[in-house]
């Protein structure tokens, strides 16, 4: 019998510093064993337990897209003991991951439809996965609109790709920062405000992912615009351990974020105690 608790070995190929505070780093990992790579099939929105032997595990959304073969990408913010240890890693190190875990963004529903993707801060990881995936299968989807907010220009992650996307005609990108900044000629304002102002078409699907405070204030705006609860999706975070619905840590109501989520529609969340 296979054992979900045993991490598979991954090699750290590349480390990218994402912000000037050096609290955000992106890690590109490659599979050490070919057979692990063949078995590892995932969709945007899923997550993995990132494992440092001797220190423990921490869950992160997968930032790479399934269409980027042979690579798994995670962006890690340094906040606790495990993430600190991850930040100490060097290129070439071997780490462990367990996954893919959880459900994914409702890709089946998005096919042929317009999609709005709203993100804030470093919670843009699985959103990047979704966007790259959609762009790699561009003809399958309708209009793609992205709203992405950060404290200041330096705190956007995946800056190079944001530039590429801005240059493309088949994706609309609204980048916004909290307050004016020298040289910034794009939007200024918090994500909920920008969401209200950019003229979204409420027939689209929405995926929202960001800090809890951003989600809290963006959801009412979306409802105001006219998006149906069943078409608004978000990804939740809680402490997690097992990742397979047993250890009880990530429970919200009768659901476990690790197996019923992390992706939930607003319609589902409204029925779950403790979800907000």
């Amino acid at each position: 019998m296979s054992n979900t608790y045993i991490p598979i070995p991954m090699k750290l190929e590349r480390i990218i510093n994402e912000d000037p505070d050096r609290t955000l780093r992106t890690f590109d990992l490659s599979f050490v064993n070919k057979q692990d790579e063949e078995k590892f099939s995932y969709m945007p929105g899923q997550f993995c337990e990132f494992s440092i032997l001797g220190k423990g595990e921490s869950p992160f959304g997968i930032a790479s897209s399934p269409s980027e073969k042979g690579l798994l990408k995670f962006t890690v913010s340094r906040t606790g003991s495990v993430t600190q240890e991850i930040h100490y890693l060097q290129e070439g190190d071997i780490v462990g991951i367990r996954g893919p875990l959880g459900n994914w963004y409702p890709d089946e529903k998005l096919r042929g439809k317009d999609t709005v993707i709203i993100g804030g801060g470093f919670a843009f990881t699985t959103l990047r996965s979704m966007i790259v995936y959609m762009l790699d299968h561009r003809q399958e989807y309708g209009k793609i609109t992205v709203i992405y907010g950060a404290r200041s220009p330096e705190f956007f992650i995946f800056k190079d790709e944001l530039k590429e996307w801005e240059a493309r005609a088949d994706i609309t990108l609204h980048l916004t920062i909290d307050k004016p900044y020298p040289g910034w000629d794009k939007l200024i304002g918090f994500v909920p405000t920008v969401t209200k102002e950019v003229g979204l078409d409420p027939s689209a699907y929405v995926i929202v992912c960001g800090p809890p405070i951003m989600i809290k204030y963006t959801l009412p705006v979306l409802s105001e615009i006219g998006f149906e609860d069943s078409k608004i999706f978000t990804s939740l975070e809680r402490r997690m351990k097992c990742g397979i619905g047993k250890c009880g840590r990530c429970g919200i109501g009768s659901k476990y974020i690790c197996i019923d989520g992390p992706v939930f529609s607003l319609e589902e969340l409204k029925k779950i105690p403790e979800s907000f």
């Binding site: 440092i52 032997l53 001797g54 220190k55 423990g56 351990k241 097992c242 047993k246 250890c247 009880g248």
Partner: peptide, 14 residues
């Protein structure tokens, strides 16, 4: 049946 998972040891052995 809630449980925790922890590592005991160092990076070389544990």
């Amino acid at each position: 049946h809630c449980f925790d998972m922890r590592d005991e040891g160092n990076e070389d052995k544990g």
